[in-house]
Computed example of a mutant assay.
Amino acid sequence: MAWFFVGIVIIPTTVFADNDPRPGSQAALNILVHSYRRTIIELVEFQKKNKGIPDFYPYASCQEQILATIILGLDNIDNNAANQLVLDLSGVYFGEATGPVFSCLVQRKGRKLMKYLKKGKYLTSWCIKELPAEVCREEKVALSFLLEDIERESYLECDLPIYPPPASKRLSPP
Rank of each mutant, 00 (worst) to 15 (best):
V44N: 01
S103N: 14
W126K: 01
E96C: 04
I41P: 02
S90N: 14
I71D: 01
N79K: 05
S90F: 05
E130T: 09
V92T: 10
C104F: 02
Y36G: 01
P100A: 08
A133D: 10
R37V: 02
L74H: 00
V15Y: 14
P54M: 12
A81F: 07
Y93S: 11
R111G: 09
I128T: 11
A82M: 08
S61R: 13
A60M: 12
V9C: 03
C127D: 08
R38H: 13
D88K: 09
L32Y: 05
Q26T: 12
P21M: 11
K115A: 14
R108Q: 14
P12M: 03
R137M: 13
K112N: 10
N83H: 11
N76I: 00
A27G: 06
K51T: 07
L74C: 03
L123I: 07
A28V: 00
C127A: 12
V106L: 05
V101G: 01
K129D: 10
R111S: 14
A81E: 15
V33M: 05
R22V: 11
E45S: 10
C136L: 01
N76H: 02
C62M: 15
L117P: 01
T124F: 06
R38M: 04
G7C: 07
A68N: 14
S35R: 15
N80Y: 07
T39N: 08
F46S: 12
A28D: 09
K109C: 07
P21I: 00
V106A: 07
Y122P: 09
P132T: 01
N79R: 12
P54W: 07
G95Y: 05
L74K: 03
V101P: 02
Q26E: 14
D20M: 01
C62T: 10
C127H: 10
L123G: 01
F46G: 07
L123E: 02
I41N: 06
N79D: 15
E139L: 01
I10Q: 15
S90R: 10
Y57V: 11
T14Y: 12
T13E: 11
G110A: 03
I70F: 06
Y59D: 09
D75I: 00
L123V: 08
C62R: 13
L85N: 08
W126T: 06
A68S: 14
C62V: 08
K112W: 02
A27F: 00
A68V: 13
R37W: 05
V44T: 08
A28Q: 09
E134D: 15
L87C: 03
L72C: 06
K129C: 06
L105S: 09
L117M: 11
E64W: 06
Q26K: 13
I77D: 09
S61W: 01
G7H: 08
G24E: 05
P100T: 05
E64I: 03
K112S: 15
E96V: 13
F46V: 06
L87D: 00
P23M: 02
K121R: 15
V6P: 00
V106R: 11
